[in-house]
Design a protein around this nucleic acid. Structure first.
Lengths: 119, 119
DNA sequence: ATCATTGTATTAAGCAAATGATACAACGAG
DNA sequence: CTCGTTGTATCATTTGCTTAATACAATGAT
C-alpha cells in the first residue's frame, strides 16, 4: 500500500484522517491492539514523531487508549465509533452541499448532479 | 465581509479558492478589471505578498491576465471559466463519492444519504 | 512635469511542521 | 537477570508560509 500526502496539509492531520477511516470501516476493531508507533510510522513512511502526534490526537478524542509499555488499543466503546462514522458522513455531505451552493446550486440540483458522475 | 482561514492550509491556497469561486459565480466577470493587489490584500486582511502569490497562481492558469502598471483583468475566454466551473463541480462530486466509499457506501447509497441532510 | 497608483521584487524576521537522532522508564519473554 | 519492545520526551535542523518594510519602473490623471 502506498500512501499519498497532500503537501498543502500537515501530514499528521492526514494521518489522523487515515486512522479515523480505519476505525470507521473496521480495519481495526473495538478493543483491538494497534501496531506500535514505530510500525505505524514505517507503514506510512513518516517520522515516528509525526506518527505519535497523530496517535496522540486520536487518543485525545478517546478513540484509542494506551497501556504504557504495552501498546495502544482501539476504544471498547462501540457507540463512539458509530458516532465517528455518523459525523464523518454528515461532514462529507454538508461540505458537498456547501461547495455546490458557492457556485449557485441548491440541494435538489446538487443531488441530481451526482447521477451523472461516475463513482 | 469577514473571511475565515483554516490554519491547516496555506492562506494563499485558500485565497485561490475564494478567487476561483468569484470567477465561477460571476462576482468578477470575463474581461472585468480586478481590484488592485493592495486592495485585495486589504479586503482579505492578508499581506500583499501573500495576495500576490495567490493572484500569480491564478494568472499561471490563464484565468486572469495582467496589464502592467494598469491592473489585472479576468480572462476574456468564457470557455475557460466554464471549464473551471465544470471541474470544480466534478471534483466536489468525486471527492464526496470517494469519501463515502472509504466507509463502505456506494453511489446509490451515497445519493440516497443526501436526502436526509439539511443543505 | 508631478503625483498617485499599478505590478513586481527583495530582504529580514518569525513561526510551525517535519525529520533525524537520541534517550529513558516500564513491562514481558526468554 | 537480560534483552527487546513498548510509549514518550528532547534537541537540533531544515523547509515553507507569512508578515513587514521597502524599493522601483511604468502608466494615467492633474
Amino acid at each position: 500500500m502506498d500512501f499519498t500526502f497532500d503537501n498543502n496539509i500537515p501530514i499528521y492531520i492526514q494521518l489522523l484522517e487515515y486512522l479515523k477511516i480505519y476505525l470507521i470501516s473496521g480495519v481495526f476493531k473495538c478493543g483491538e491492539k494497534l501496531p506500535s508507533v514505530r510500525d505505524f510510522a514505517n507503514t506510512f513512511k513518516v517520522n515516528p514523531n509525526t506518527m505519535q502526534k497523530a496517535l496522540a490526537e486520536l487518543e485525545s478524542m478517546n478513540l484509542i487508549y494506551t497501556e504504557r509499555t504495552n501498546g495502544k488499543y482501539v476504544t471498547k466503546d462501540e457507540k463512539l465509533i458509530e458516532k465517528l462514522k455518523d459525523e464523518y458522513a454528515i461532514t462529507l455531505a454538508k461540505s458537498y452541499f456547501q461547495g455546490m451552493k458557492r457556485i449557485g446550486l441548491g440541494k435538489a440540483d446538487s443531488i441530481k448532479y451526482l447521477e451523472g458522475i461516475n463513482e
